[in-house]
């Protein structure tokens, strides 16, 4: 169903203000990341601009396929599309395995725990004609008559629900957010531009923010991600059936 892969991201939330781009920190992280082609750099955290703490550590692969941003309260591990259809992203299982490996190295370097976890994926559905796109809109929105007659060229369908999973034998509440958006714009490829009109699909599965106990270790991360993948897979199956793609 998902024909073009977009950014995939695993985030761990915690108190990481000490992970700043000093020599000691960088030495520690480089040691932990031996064998991986990550280059240390910096990134500017907008919320901290003006505080003197805005410059944060970043690890990047040269082609920017992988970026690890060490923000004050969050570490984002992202994999970005660098090929036309995002083929480099691979399947969700591969991405999660690589992200877990990165998490292990981070935890080894800094001995951290986190209080919140998330898995976010984006992608685009296959190219469809406008009739099909319109049909999907009607299926999703069951719109008022005005919009049945004047089908929107752009729409956002976002749902959020809570569910529960078990991590380390304890119940954890999850936010499960799904977004289907009709988007359009330009594809630029080898100096040829082409319009596109497609459906973007995003999944954002995260543990809720209320519990701020720094309780998640690497095993928790693995348990969470495995269950998040299952939920995502189920969502994809359900969506596919519902919108008939």
């Amino acid at each position: 169903m998902i024909k073009i892969s977009g950014k995939h991201q695993v985030s761990i939330f915690g108190e990481f203000s000490d992970i700043v781009p000093t020599s000691e920190t960088i030495l520690s992280i480089l040691n932990s990341f031996k064998g991986k082609d990550f280059i240390p750099g910096t990134v500017r955290e907008i919320a901290k601009i003006g505080t003197g703490n805005e410059i944060r550590l970043q690890l990047a692969t040269q082609n920017k396929e992988w970026l690890v941003n060490f923000l004050t309260n969050r570490i984002d591990i992202e994999k970005n599309p660098i090929e036309g259809d995002g083929d480099n992203i691979g399947n969700i299982q591969n991405f999660v395995e690589e992200a877990v490996d990165i998490c292990k190295r981070i935890i080894k370097a800094f001995k951290i725990k986190s209080y919140r976890l998330s898995l976010i994926t984006t992608g685009m559905l296959d190219d469809m004609n406008s009739s099909k796109l319109d049909a999907i809109y009607i299926k999703l929105f069951n719109p008022i008559s005005y919009y049945r007659k004047n089908i929107p060229f752009e729409w956002n369908f976002r749902t959020g629900a809570n569910t529960e999973i078990t991590i380390k034998n304890k119940k954890e509440r999850l936010n499960v957010l799904t977004s289907l958006n009709r988007i359009h714009g330009l594809i630029i490829h080898q100096d040829v531009t082409q319009n596109f009109d497609r459906i973007e699909i995003q999944f954002d599965i995260n543990t809720t923010h209320e519990n701020k106990n720094q309780r998640f270790n690497i095993n928790s991360i693995i348990e969470f991600l495995n269950q998040a993948i299952e939920i995502r897979t189920q969502l994809i199956t359900d969506i596919k059936e519902h919108i008939n793609v």
């Binding site: 991201q9 750099g41 955290e45 944060r56 941003n69 976010i120 957010l177």
Partner: peptide, 16 residues
């Protein structure tokens, strides 16, 4: 939607 957790990395000003 801003409620998406950090997917758009709105919180950071990246080297890109």
């Amino acid at each position: 939607d801003q409620n998406f957790l950090n997917i758009d990395n709105q919180d950071i000003y990246s080297i890109n």
